[in-house]
């Protein structure tokens, strides 16, 4: 883990890091990865990865509308909306 990797993943995650904090972040992530690397102490080549504790199958249902449209209600929480649209800075020049 180094500064370059940290800024690359921060960029992927859309997070800005203060220059003053980058060293601390690198340091902490290194420690976390060291803890995580303890996983390599066991051989898992014969095991299947487990993504869900109960091995459930994805439930499907008929594709019918169940909920009413509540756009106005949901947009009350928007930091900036107008006429049903979300207002953001210009995307295309």
């Amino acid at each position: 883990m180094d500064k370059e990797t940290v800024s690359k993943i921060a960029n992927l995650a859309n997070i800005e890091l203060d220059d003053s904090k980058v060293n601390e972040v690198v340091n902490n992530l290194e420690k976390i990865l060291k803890l995580v690397d303890e996983m390599n102490s066991v051989d898992t080549s014969n095991l299947n990865p487990m993504s869900h504790p109960l091995n459930l199958k994805q439930e499907l249902r008929d594709d019918i509308v169940l909920e009413p449209n509540q756009r106005e209600l949901f947009q009350e929480n928007s930091p900036n909306s107008h006429d049903g649209y979300y207002i953001v800075p210009k995307i295309i020049d």
């Binding site: 859309n14 997070i15 949901f74």
Partner: peptide
């Protein structure tokens, strides 16, 4: 964009997210 904190100071959409 849709809910939660929004910065007051963004010139483009990527800056808005970040």
């Amino acid at each position: 964009v849709r809910f939660g904190h929004r910065t007051k100071d963004a010139e483009n959409i990527i800056e808005l997210y970040k």
